[in-house]
């Protein structure tokens, strides 16, 4: 049995009215899970609930990882800081691996600095390292957001449509970098994806939301 990274027990999610009810699932190391379903059905809300950004309406969400450093999150709008350089954004991911008492204006230790450089190279954005993120294209920004999460070396990575706007070559680059972290860290990826075909290519577990229920495909 692989290490359990998260467990949801009889969870109902939503904001006022429940969107999805009675979710009982576990996420284990090595999982690459794709959540599928039409727009507005609760996929992003489920991801945000696991990330601790939304309280479940009922039930328990237990995380087997420390949020600081252990949990990576790529929001749908990526959550990059547009005025900072690509490198500074990726460094932000590496920074949460340090103690929370490490002051944010101090430079990163040498080994983490090298890891940041490796992340930039693995995502093919090392040549953009000093560019401010705001001037990059959508696809490039997605790779920066991925690099930031990889630099964090999370045990559980939650990604909301992070493969959108990427062409086939870039999907391969991004997924290869993510898979490398999953293998190295023995971690898991949970992603919301609109493109079912793409999701089935990369995921080893598929969750579908249908009629307010979460169903796992065999």
């Amino acid at each position: 049995m692989n290490e359990e990274l998260a467990h949801l027990h009889e969870v109902s999610i939503g904001y006022v009215e429940p969107l999805v009810q009675d979710i009982t699932i576990e996420i284990a190391a090595g999982d690459v899970i794709a959540i599928l379903g039409p727009s507005g059905i609760g996929k992003t809300t489920l991801l945000r609930t696991i990330a601790g950004l939304v309280r479940p309406l009922s039930g328990d969400v237990e995380l087997g990882v420390e949020p600081r450093g252990g949990l990576g999150y790529i929001p749908q709008r990526l959550g990059l800081v547009g005025n900072l350089s690509v490198r500074a954004n990726v460094e932000m991911g590496a920074r949460v691996r340090l103690s929370k008492w490490h002051l944010p204006f101090l430079p990163l230790p040498k080994d983490l600095n090298e890891e940041v450089t490796n992340c930039l190279e693995s995502l093919g954005i090392d040549h953009l390292a000093e560019q401010p993120v705001r001037i990059l294209s959508g696809g490039q920004q997605r790779r920066v957001a991925t690099a930031r999460s990889i630099a964090q070396a999370p045990k559980l990575l939650l990604a909301d449509e992070f493969l959108g706007e990427l062409d086939d070559d870039n999907v391969e680059i991004v997924m290869s970098a993510v898979q490398h972290v999953i293998d190295k860290q023995n971690s898991a990826l949970v992603m919301v994806e609109h493109h079912e075909e793409l999701a089935r290519q990369v995921a080893n577990r598929i969750w579908k939301i249908h009629d307010g229920r979460l169903i796992e495909e065999d």
């Binding site: 945000r48 990330a51 601790g52 950004l53 420390e66 949020p67 600081r68 450093g69 252990g70 949990l71 990576g72 999150y73 790529i74 929001p75 749908q76 709008r77 990526l78 959550g79 990059l80 800081v81 932000m92 991911g93 920074r95 949460v96 929370k100 002051l103 944010p104 964090q152 999370p154 939650l158």
Partner: peptide, 17 residues
């Protein structure tokens, strides 16, 4: 924008960071 703040919060950054 809220997204960078959410990303920071989810990854466990403290307020100062």
């Amino acid at each position: 924008k809220n997204a960078p703040l959410e990303a920071a919060k989810a990854t466990g950054m403290n307020r100062f960071e």
